[in-house]
């Protein structure tokens, strides 16, 4: 059975102009997101995961620019749209929750004002109608209406983040892109927020792209996920399969690096440091840190290939 694709990214490149040349932060990323799933994007700092979703949402600011590729949302190339056409897509069809959104709530305005502002900014409805919509979306996500009358500082971190998610879902978009929504939250709040995201998928059939550096977060809610390293996707697949049998040596290293209260074992981590986007290593970008690197890895860039149905990996080990 083939699930329908809601978003397809084809060979997307996002570069930043610097005095030392282009920083190729996202360097040829291709992936497909299916309707109604939580699609995770994992990777460590500097791998380009945030820049990738900023590219998808078309909010790259100079000196950054999109150097090539396509972003097909329901077969419309977002990169070809005029700015006002893109505005019609933003928030109504695709909502985006940037990293640290919850700390950008205005401290002197009540939550109500801020949720309504977001709604009015993207529609022509009346204030009353917007308030009604705000109440509706909070109820749908299991949040009490009282939060509308509160100031951001009165809310716990988890509650703030859930208000942000509710705001993003206010106009019932089909796709929500959440960049590190649970970073800096305590575990209990983290769990509440992840449950809210899972509920959006399960109950309201919203598709979610979840960017997070923490692999455990992906293990908890994702359906499928991609792992990025040095501006490229190294592996894509079903989340169960990835954790059960990671294919790329980097994915394996990442999963084995996580200490867990369920298993006490010695963890080695991945030796070496992540490379700089100004100067990616030749060949496979992971080869300087890879235990299996051979001559081919040092010179030839591995393509992302489907080696079994639904499992993609970019590694020379797999032929």
């Amino acid at each position: 059975m083939n699930k329908s694709t809601i978003l397809e990214v084809k060979n997307l490149k996002v570069y930043y102009k610097t005095v030392a040349g282009d920083a190729k932060v996202v360097d040829g990323v291709s992936l497909k997101v299916n309707e109604g799933e939580i699609f995770g994007i994992a990777g460590e700092s500097g791998c380009g995961k945030s820049t990738l979703v900023e590219g998808i949402y078309r909010i790259i600011k100079p000196p950054g620019y999109i150097a090539g590729g396509k972003v097909l949302f329901r077969n419309i190339d977002l990169l070809k749209l005029k700015e006002d056409e893109m505005r019609e897509i933003r928030w109504k069809k695709i909502a985006y929750i940037p990293q640290g959104a919850m700390s950008s709530l205005n401290p002197v305005l009540k939550v109500e004002e801020q949720v309504i502002d977001a709604i009015l900014d993207h529609t022509d409805m009346s204030r009353e109608k917007a308030l009604e919509i705000a109440k509706e979306v909070l109820t749908d996500l299991g949040l009490p209406e009282e939060v509308l009358n509160m100031y951001p500082h009165e809310l716990s971190g988890g509650m703030k983040q859930r208000v942000i998610i509710a705001t993003a879902y206010a106009l019932r978009p089909e796709l929500i892109i959440a960049d590190e929504p649970v970073t800096a939250l305590d575990v209990v709040s983290l769990r509440e927020v992840l449950q809210t995201l899972a509920e959006l998928r399960d109950k309201y059939k919203v598709t979610i792209i979840l960017v997070a550096h923490d692999m455990a977060v992906h293990a908890e809610v994702d359906d499928r996920m991609a792992i990025m390293y040095a501006g490229k996707v190294v592996e894509i697949g079903d989340v169960n399969k990835i954790f059960e049998d990671p294919l790329h040596p980097y994915t394996r290293g990442l999963i084995e690096s996580i200490p867990s209260i369920k298993k006490k074992k010695i963890i080695k981590g991945i030796p070496g440091i992540a490379p700089s986007p100004l100067n990616w290593p030749p060949g496979c970008r992971f080869h300087p840190r890879c235990p299996h690197a051979n001559e081919k890895c040092r010179t030839e860039i591995p393509e992302l290939k489907e080696i079994e149905p639904g499992r993609f990996v970019a590694c020379h080990i797999y032929g």
Partner: peptide, 22 residues
């Protein structure tokens, strides 16, 4: 604690006496 294993997901919703609103 989120566990790095999709087979050990949280089974049920978190039970708290009161929503941790404030």
């Amino acid at each position: 604690i989120p566990l790095p294993d999709p087979k050990m997901r949280w089974k049920e919703k978190l039970k708290l006496k009161k929503l941790s609103l404030k």
